[in-house]
Design a protein around this nucleic acid. Structure first.
Lengths: 181, 181
DNA sequence: CCATTTAACCGTATATAATTCTGCCAATGA
DNA sequence: TCATTGGCAGAATTATATACGGTTAAATGG
């Protein structure tokens, strides 16, 4: 039996999260690009054997750096080839109005993203649509959402860049970890 | 040696791509949420045995419905907790100006997305940043990009929704596939 | 400077899963 | 009806994940 010395410092969680070294970063960078890579191959890539490699992956998952894994699907081939952004201004900026709008907007499947923004209007929405016809009916839904005063739409003509990954820096030395828990 | 009857109908590719049935959709929907699910478990989920299930996954990959797999990383914990949108207007709308701007903007790692849009300005950029300090230096880079006439920034205060997945419809019957090659 | 402790690593062994192969069944068309 | 095709299940094989034990290197304290 250990004395259990209650040595809590100023940490949010009680589990100790150490800073990430360059191998962790390399694992994260690899996994965000090749999420289904075999552990054996991942280990090779980061110059580790299989066992410590999978230990690190498990740790990164447990500590929340990795939130999950997902397949990247071809949106055009699956009937979502059109994208549009909609700026939304609400008629009043009370928290009640905001809450109602948010609760309603997240329910719409075609709304891929909804960001509350500062700088002129209130919300910026990103829509995924099969075509421009579908846009009409979605816009009708959105202008009817609670609190919506006005909207402005920008239709995407061309996706120049669409990186989902984070630009993780792969340092040459392990002494300068770019992120911590 | 086969006669090679040259029976091409109006298809873009020469390899035959059949319409997706409800099992395919179910596989895609599962994989976009749980990209690292074991084939055995995926098979159970879609009411199939392991072998036809992996056959379908391989087919969906080969036909381009699945473009890849990736880990979903926690951007805040990895030093990219701040997001911002920048509207960019170019000084001239010649294709030469557009090309130069695009070539330059895709090189900036902090530019997560760049969309050419219709409806008032020319490009909409989405940035990932560690904090607001980083924003200053990035904006300086962007206004110096070739052809940029003016910009307007919207800083994201709160991410209400950020679905990367497509809202795939899981039909009850297999006779109405929602997508084809 | 040396002993002790700790943490991370590697290689092996076992369990689990992926993948391939064979045969069966149903749907399709002659 | 019969032949053909396509898709499926289950078994066998191969590969991978995972748990275990021993080793090394670095940090800590005397």
């Amino acid at each position: 039996m250990k004395p259990q010395t209650q040595k809590n410092t100023a940490m949010t969680t009680n589990s100790k999260i150490k800073a990430l070294d360059r191998i962790d970063i390399s694992i994260l960078d690899t996994l965000q690009k090749e999420g289904r890579i075999a552990n054996v191959d991942l280990a090779k890539k980061v110059n580790l054997s299989a066992s410590p490699c999978i230990d690190r992956v498990k740790r990164l998952e447990k500590e929340g750096f990795i939130e999950g894994y997902g397949a990247r699907l071809n949106s055009s081939k699956l009937g979502y080839g059109t994208a549009a952004f909609i700026q939304v201004t609400l008629d009043r900026t009370t928290s009640d109005v905001f809450d109602k709008f948010r609760d309603a907007v997240v329910q719409i499947p075609q709304v891929a993203e909804c960001h509350m923004v500062a700088g002129g209007f209130d919300y910026l929405l990103k829509l995924r649509l099969p075509n421009m016809e579908a846009y009409r009916s979605i816009l009708a839904k959105i202008v009817d959402l609670p609190g919506v005063a006005q909207t402005h739409t920008y239709v995407v003509i061309e996706q120049v860049k669409n990186d989902q990954g984070l630009p993780l820096k792969l340092h040459a030395d392990a002494s300068t970890p770019p992120a911590a828990g």
